[in-house]
Amino acid sequence: MTMNINQSDINKKQIDIINQQYTEKIRESAKKVLLEKKVDVVIGFKNGTEPMTTEPCLINKASDADKLIWNEHCRLNLANYVKGRKDKAAVVAKGCDSRNLVNHIIEHQIKRENLYIIGVPCNGMVDKSLNLKELKVEAESDTMQENLDLFPINRDMLQDNCKTCIKRNPVIFDEMIAEPVKEREWTKEEKLKESFESVNKIEAMAESDRWSFFNDMLSSCTRCYACRNACPLCYCPTCFVDESRPQWVGKGTDLIDVRTYHFLRAFHCAGRCTDCGACEAACPMNIKVRLFTKKLDKECFENFGWEAGMSLDERPPLDVYKVNDNANFIR
């Protein structure tokens, strides 16, 4: 397998150096655009309250720009925090965030001229559950720190969507804070086989197994809607789960309602999902909700050659048609 990803041999020290460089550049850019009054606010990440956590934050004074940071725990998608903004905002954006900004622009949620995109070449995000699994989560912070020092990003530690990332550098940006990282060159076959491996596995199951597989997977879902709320694509004024005339989805804990919610949520993201992984990063029960959106990504890629958020000039696949689209399933 030809992997161009150089993460496997990046050790903790190198990651620290990269993080530090990125952080400094982000702060510098934030100060500059605020002082030059190019933007009203800067949206980025700051350190969280515990080791290995981050929190999206809004900076509106150049003197606060030193709060901004960058590291391998910036999992949430900051495109989620610009939708509906009327002011001019600078956004710190990794590859997938920028793809969602493209989505927002072509869906008329924000105007390109109101955005200043601080592009971050992304080395991938660490899987959030490793915090708990790999490291002893004890009250003593000394042991925490020791463990942190042994913490490299190798491929196994990346969150699932980063393992199959197709765009690590921002698609659109106003400035880049570092040289672009090397992208993996995928052939179509490689993508279908490797990138959609999780989907392929489920497709290979028998029908009834697929049904029980998802029942099982979703039985711990509490419908907190963290997956929906973390998703930049979800901006309907009233979500279908809140509609009451007619009520499409029951409000109780019936598994069929849970399945319906996840089915329709994923369907709403068809042809729009950039596989940024914010939904899985947000899920408190660690449910692999990407298995749904990824299937629709695969359909769009296979049938329409579409990958969301890669260009400002193309409409999403369900917003266009071709006269000769596949019709062999229709009588």
Partner: peptide, 11 residues
Amino acid sequence: FACLNCGTCTY
């Protein structure tokens, strides 16, 4: 600002 307004904390 960062709050997603999901129900994780309340649930």
